[in-house]
Amino acid sequence: MSQPTGPAFQGHAQKQPAPPPDAMEVSLTINGSRKTLHVAPWTSLLDALRLHLDLTGTKKGCDHGQCGACTVLVDGRRINSCLTLAVMAEGRTVTTIEGLASGDALHPLQEAFVEQDAFQCGYCTPGQICSAVGLLEEGHAKSDDDIRELMSGNLCRCGAYPNIVAAIRQVMDAQPAANDGGAS
């Protein structure tokens, strides 16, 4: 039986492929420092962080917005850095896991994650922590079930979820109750 198939059903008229795109200049603030990058439009913010800036704390777990390992804060909001282009971040303020601690003092969420053993392999952890920072900032989570739902965009294959909830709960409980009623 012969079933010749093309390059995977890609029957598009094969035009001469376009040359690789030229790099563009992008200026943004990363973890408090102003950076200028030269990246092609097809570079995701995630790859720019990992490859161009050697900020490998932000992880690539799927590259398709389906796992949350790449979560960073852009202008204070948690997003998936794999699904945004570096050129789209022009002028933005980006905070990654490397920017959360101040000097030797860990961010309370980082402390809590260690204390509650909220990770095993550690690969999803930076994304979990950045996501949790965003969650606390958003102020919509009141109960443990809220935390579970609003942290569901961060997969953890080691299954550290109960400890992740405990770590976030620990930091939430330690915060002054400033969010009451203001969130919605």
């Binding site: 979560t71 998936n80 699904l83 965003g134 969650l135 958003e138 942290m151 961060n154």
Partner: peptide
């Protein structure tokens, strides 16, 4: 729908 991160984007 989606996740908190995706809804932010």
């Amino acid at each position: 729908g989606a996740s908190a991160q995706l809804r932010n984007m």
